[in-house]
Structure formats: C-alpha cells, structure tokens
Write a protein that binds this DNA or RNA. Structure first.
Lengths: 343, 343
DNA sequence: TTCTCTACTGTGAACGCTCACAGAAGCATG
DNA sequence: CATGCTTCTGTGAGCGTTCACAGTAGAGAA
C-alpha cells in the first residue's frame, strides 16, 4: 500500500511501465500511440492491453516538448468582453468550439484580452508556441493582437470576415448578404412595397453585406433606390428606436422594415408602437440574428438565423487543417429565415 | 535572414540562449525566473536584460515535465450545458475565473462534460495530471465525475455547496439563507403580513437554505408557520406560474410573495397579472438571483444579488491555496438586496 | 594562516516522450 | 546463396527545463 498524503497524487504510469508490462520497447508503445503503423498485430494488442491494465495516459508535456506542438488551441476574445458574454450566440460559439475540439482530444484555452496588459501577455503566450492555433473573436478593425499573431505566423481562424487583414487569415462567416436577400424577398412576397431598412455599422463587413442584400433584391424587383428608406444604426436597441423614428418621419408610408439586428428591431418595435403603427398589419418588421430578443419581443420577431453551431464546427475544422499545413480558407455558410409574428 | 515558410514559426529562444546572452549559466537564469533567491543583483540584471533582448518566454512543457505541475487549471461543467450557457451568472463566473487565473499567469481549460464519453475522457485527462486543479460547476447530487476526482486527490473547488460529498471538497457559495432573510425582512418592512413563498427544489442546498431564511424571519416576527403560504418549484418560469396560481387559491389574502428565483418570479408576475392583482400594490414580489429576467420583467423585480464576481475570485483563491497544500475550505459570501419596482 | 560560514554560480542528471537510425526477420528475386 | 525489399522492433539521443549537488569567492573568527 502506497503512502498517499492528503491531496497527494501518485505519479502516473509512464510509457516505460507500459512497455515493460507489454514486453515490448518504448518505441513500439509510442508507435501504437501514434497511429500504429509498422506495428505487428500481436504487439498492437499487447500494448493496448497493457495500457488498459496500467491506466496509462500519455504525458502531453513530454510529448509537446519534443514535437514542438502543444496540442491545445486558444479561444481568443479581443472584443470588450461584456458585450460578448451577454450574447447567446457567442455562448453557442464557445460551446461549439469546445465540443468540436474535444472530439480531437484537444483542450481549449479561454483567453480574454480585455486590458492592454492582458493583450500583451496573451500575445507573448501565443507566439511563444503555447497553443498551436487560435480561434479569434474580434471586432477586426485593425486589431493589433490579431495583426501580431498573423505576422508571427500563428494559425488563425476568425469568426466573421476580418477587415484590414490580408487574405492570410482564415475566416468562417454566415452569408450576411444572402440572409438579407431572403428577408427582403420575404417582405416583398407579403405584398409590401415600401420596405425600409435600419442598417448595422457600415464599417463592418456584416453591416455592408446586409445593406447590399437589401439593395440587390429591391433593384431586382424593379424598385428605385430611395435613400429616405435607409438609416444606419450600431446594433444597439437605442439606435433601432431612433432609426425607426427617423424612418417614420422621412417615409411615413413605409409598410415594412428590415432591421440588421434583433436588438435594434426591438427598438424599432417600441418606436412603431409609440407611433401607433400595428405590427405586422401596418408595418412588417424583420430582424437579423435570431437572438433571444427575437423571441422575447412582442410580437415575436421574424428574423434570420445564423448557423452558429456550424460556424463553430467549421472554425475548428479550418484551423486544424491550417495547423496541418493547408492554406488559409474562407468559409461562408447559409442562413435561415425564421418566420414569426412580426411579418 | 531566416527562411521562414508560409505559416512556419521560428523555434523560440531557450533558457540556453538567455544564459549565453547574459554570460551566466542555465541555473542562474532558472533561479531568476523562479523568484530570484540566491542571485547577485548584477546577474539578476544581466539575465533580465537578456530576457528582454531575446524575447524569451519559458517553455511550460519542459517546466511541467520536471515539476510535475501543469500550471493550468480546468473549468469543469458537468451540468447539462444548455441551461448554464444561457445563464448570465454562469458567464460572469466563467469570465471572472478566467481573469482571476490570468493574474497568476495560469491558463483556464474549458471542459464540458456533456456526454458519458466526455465525462470519461475528461476524468482521465484530469486525473492524469494535465491540470493542477478543477473549478467545478455541477449539480452536486452524486456527481460521479466530481466523486472520482475527489477520490483521486485532485484539488477541487465547487461553486455552491456540494451535497453528498465529504468535507474534503472546497466550495464557495453565496449566503442563500441570509439573502432570503433580507428579502423577507424587506417585505415585512413594507407592512406586508401575509408573505407567501415559492421555493426552489428542496433537494438542493440553495433551495433548502432560502426556505429556511424565509421561515426564520417569519418566526422571529412572531408569525406562525402557515403551510398554505408555501409551494415548491424547480426554478423554471412555468413552475413559478403554477406555484402562484396555487398560492392564490390556497391563500387569497396573500399580500407578498418571495420567489426563490427570478425566472420563477416572472411566472409569478404573469399569474398575478392574469388574476387581476396589481404588483406591488396588491401583492409585492421579491425574486432571487438578479438575473436579466429581473430587469426585463415589468414591473422590474426586486431581487437578491449574488456576488458572482467575488465568487469566482474566491474560487480561484481557494483552489490555488489548496494546490499549494492548504486544507479544503468553505467560503460563504454575503448577498445584496436590490430594490426595484415589484415591492 | 586556516577554518568556517554565507552568498552565489555552474554542472550533470533527470522528467517522459518522439524520432532517426540501425538492425533483424521473413520472403521473393536474381 | 547472395541480394534486395518490406515489415517490424529496439536503442540512443535529445526536446527545455528544474533540481540537487559540488564548487568558488569573500568575509569574518580563531
């Protein structure tokens, strides 16, 4: 019986113990551990049995020391953290990435680059090779951390199309433009003819793309572009409210509005309610994101769902491919129209 | 100029390079790195300068290999994940733990034990020594993972008082009983005399404690216990709604109700509204948790705030202490009454 | 002077693994 | 019977640290 102090932990079995137990050499055990090529079935079997008997688990530190890989990846958030942690889509993303990595037996390190100090610390940590790659959630507008990592050659996959970075960085994004097209087509199919829009910030790819989709469909349908029908917002509820007020002022005959985020759409609903417009009878409202806000508002919002579960899976896939030597890639995933009460 | 293939990464400088650069030995550099005892000021200075010049970052794998520590800790979620990732308090906890660990330069590994496979995999991973300790979010009712970790002697700190585990496991929790007392005292101070309660699940410590606080204050105030005023729920909105209906039936003269969670309180508000009772004029409603639901409901909920930011900081502190050899500890933190419109 | 003590520094040996290499065994080919 | 090829196995070196130990230098005491 081994003396084991309170909280003490036995040193776990090593590859040596397994080799002795199986009657083979360390090399053979290592080969079994890493794919099992050039190992006889008999040895294979003996080693596996020994591993089971001893409860052996590979020491990743020793492995990493020699391979130079860490077999772990970082999930890096350079945005102001509050906003993201409150966003359920972000949570789905984080959860999805963790699970996707788990199937590869790769741990996820959560990295929050809130302060300047943290940014410096994490940049050093990452470039020192303590992770093999980074899943990046960033605002993309000249993010210095992302830029440094890219320069250091760290495999990187962004969530959403990055701006201001060369094509060297992979990304996975929902098809914003096509989602917007779907929504506007849907509004037209309901017979609406004066379709307004509250855009997102136009210095982000998402904001630009959603506007472009709106314009494309209206043009295809034969409408001239009416700038009175378009106001811009910043994704906040307040900006939606203000936007709707301006729209009502400039285009009182508006009978539908496509809002670039659910949160803004909540503001729009409030403004319409105050102005005495019924939704959807007088004005149909379409949102974007399928956030809980869409379900919580009344009437419930028709919206565009982004495939966050697939986005996370793809981010992991692309990152691992890139770590494996493949070139950076861009993946665009289709969105889905979710019809509810507001249209 | 070093040839550097696309995506290739230079091998970072080692302790050897620093030693050569500083004109000292590896041992001296190592001593500087680990506290700097028994190092002359001159050497200290030379090493630090060399570290800055070379951009040296310690290779944690090599260090871990010899020290046996991993200098990383796991954040383990054994609950059904959906519920927690939707809970903003959980997000505050996760964020707080990550940040608290960051100040110690310790990375946090996110571990989601959703499926049975994952549970097995993570248990092996943890007991193999790949993390030095675990921050645990669990339902505590005979959690087999937690039990195994405890038996293996892995330092463990739970969030909320665990049930069914010996005193060997540390935990940090809000003072549920005292929070409940504060709320009920508050309701009495408003002149209410028929105070009902919708409890949480009574097989959890939190549920029991909140009920106990309620009972204590009423007893102190000289009220006899009236079982018609107490119904139990399961923290869900629906159970709050059903609970309020039963309360109204059994005690129509109820003029206040303490609800053990904000989500249930939302249900209570809905039921009261349907029954034509005005809040707070006819019935005052007090919640628990200070979740966003409390702010989103109308009227806004008076509630009890749990100090999640302090809870995360304490969990990290206790865990690190335990890793450092100290005994398991229990920490109870005070709650805060947040007065809003519903009382 | 010699000895002891303290403050500091360098050295080799690990930690547990992978990888390159050497070699053995089996089998077909010249 | 040698030769080559394929499949398999063992061995030594080394990844970048820390740690124990041995040593050096200088100060103070005997």
């Amino acid at each position: 019986m081994t003396m084991n102090a309170a909280g003490g932990r036995r040193r776990p079995p090593t590859i040596h113990d397994v080799a002795r137990e199986a009657g083979v050499s360390r090399g053979t055990v290592s080969r079994v551990l890493n794919g099992g090529h050039y190992v006889s079935p008999a040895a294979q079997e003996a080693v596996n049995a020994a591993i089971r008997r001893t409860g052996y688990v590979v020491n990743r530190h020793a492995r990493s020391l020699i391979t130079g890989r860490s077999d772990s990846i970082g999930f890096l958030l350079t945005e102001p953290q509050e906003r993201f942690f409150e966003d359920p889509n972000f949570n789905v993303l984080l959860r999805g990435c963790t699970q996707a990595l788990a199937t590869h037996d790769i741990p996820l390190l959560l990295m929050l680059a809130g302060t300047e100090d943290e940014r410096r610390r994490l940049t050093r940590y990452i470039t020192a090779g303590h992770v093999d790659g980074v899943l990046l959630v960033s605002n993309h507008s000249g993010d210095p951390v992302a830029e440094q990592l890219r320069e250091a050659g760290v495999p990187l996959v962004a969530c959403g199309k990055p701006i201001g970075m060369g094509s060297k960085v992979s990304y996975v994004a929902a098809d914003d433009r096509d989602g917007a097209r779907d929504m506007v087509r849907h509004l037209l199919s309901l017979g609406r003819r004066r379709v307004g829009m509250v855009t997102g910030p136009l210095d982000t790819p998402g904001g630009v793309e959603r506007l472009a989709g709106y314009q494309e469909v209206l043009a295809e349908a034969g409408f001239d572009f009416d700038e009175r029908l378009v106001v811009s917002g910043d994704y906040s509820r307040a900006s939606g409210e203000a936007g709707a007020e301006r729209l009502l002022e400039r285009a009182p005959d508006m009978d539908a509005v496509f809002v670039a985020s659910d949160l803004m759409a909540q503001g729009v609903l409030a403004a319409l309610h105050r102005a005495g417009r019924r939704v959807p009878q007088d004005v149909a409202v379409g949102g974007f994101d399928d956030s809980p806000a869409a379900l919580a508002s009344s009437p419930e919002l028709t919206t565009i769902r982004q495939p966050w579960d697939r986005i996370s899976a793809e981010m992991v896939r692309v990152l691992l491919a890139q770590i494996g030597g493949e070139d950076p890639a861009a993946v665009i995933l289709p969105t889905e129209l979710v019809k509810r009460e507001s249209t």
